[in-house]
Computed example of a mutant assay.
Amino acid sequence: MNITSFLLYCCIVTFTPGPTNIVILSTVHNFGTKKAIEYSYGATIAFGLLLGISAVLNTVLIAVIPKILIVMQIIGTFYMLYLAYQIYKMDVSESAEIRTATFISGFLMQFVNPKVVLFTMTVIPSFVMPYYTTPPALAVFATLITIIGFCAFVTWVLFGAMFKEFLQKYQKTVNVIMALFLVYSAIMASGVVELIKR
């Protein structure tokens, strides 16, 4: 398992601006740090739950249809390349509208956030399951990814406006670097490197 590309992928997807992170940023500005932390707790629990669902679903699918792992790796690779493109052309200057800033809204947001749903459904089969398939190993990786996600949410809370200003000032440079890291992660997850080595 290429732990570097795995960690890069997890950090890039969770730390870069997306619906949840932008709402957290808006919550800090409009309602303060306490409300943003409450929202983040809800988002983190839902994030971990989605990872658990992914691990269970993919374990069942692999047991029933062993070749599904290759299909999920391909889907995961294309999704990472799509994310790289989206990050490359992203505009973080628009602030997200916020109606509520509660634990429940943070929790529910994850289930309607396509970035999170696709990430949680592809990260485990793309990076973890080719090497680890036992329930304890999958639980460890799901927990690790959840912790990374929580750290990302807290980062957006702590840095608030300062983080947003930095991204706006160096937006293109940051986006290009993040996009390149994602392309690297996609190549490593695809299994192409292992095929070339054979």
Score class of each variant (00 low, 15 high):
residue 3 I to H: 10
residue 4 T to H: 10
residue 4 T to V: 14
residue 7 L to F: 13
residue 19 P to N: 14
residue 21 N to H: 06
residue 22 I to G: 14
residue 25 L to F: 14
residue 26 S to C: 11
residue 29 H to Q: 15
residue 34 K to A: 12
residue 37 I to C: 13
residue 37 I to D: 07
residue 39 Y to M: 11
residue 48 G to C: 11
residue 48 G to R: 12
residue 49 L to V: 15
residue 55 A to R: 08
residue 56 V to P: 06
residue 57 L to Q: 03
residue 59 T to K: 08
residue 60 V to K: 08
residue 63 A to T: 09
residue 70 I to M: 13
residue 71 V to A: 15
residue 75 I to G: 02
residue 78 F to V: 12
residue 85 Y to S: 03
residue 88 Y to D: 07
residue 90 M to Q: 14
residue 91 D to T: 03
residue 92 V to W: 03
residue 92 V to D: 10
residue 94 E to F: 15
residue 96 A to T: 06
residue 96 A to G: 05
residue 100 T to I: 10
residue 101 A to I: 01
residue 102 T to W: 09
residue 103 F to K: 13
residue 106 G to W: 01
residue 107 F to H: 03
residue 112 V to M: 12
residue 114 P to L: 11
residue 115 K to P: 07
residue 116 V to G: 04
residue 118 L to G: 12
residue 119 F to C: 09
residue 121 M to C: 14
residue 125 P to E: 08
residue 130 P to F: 06
residue 131 Y to H: 13
residue 132 Y to N: 08
residue 132 Y to I: 05
residue 136 P to L: 10
residue 139 A to W: 03
residue 140 V to M: 14
residue 143 T to I: 09
residue 147 I to C: 10
residue 149 G to C: 07
residue 150 F to S: 08
residue 150 F to Y: 12
residue 155 T to Y: 07
residue 157 V to M: 05
residue 158 L to E: 12
residue 158 L to I: 10
residue 158 L to K: 14
residue 163 F to S: 11
residue 166 F to H: 11
residue 167 L to Q: 12
residue 170 Y to I: 02
residue 170 Y to R: 07
residue 170 Y to P: 00
residue 173 T to C: 00
residue 173 T to M: 08
residue 175 N to F: 00
residue 175 N to A: 05
residue 175 N to S: 07
residue 177 I to F: 01
residue 186 A to E: 07
residue 188 M to S: 15
residue 189 A to Y: 06
residue 189 A to H: 08
residue 191 G to Y: 00
residue 196 I to F: 07
residue 197 K to G: 03
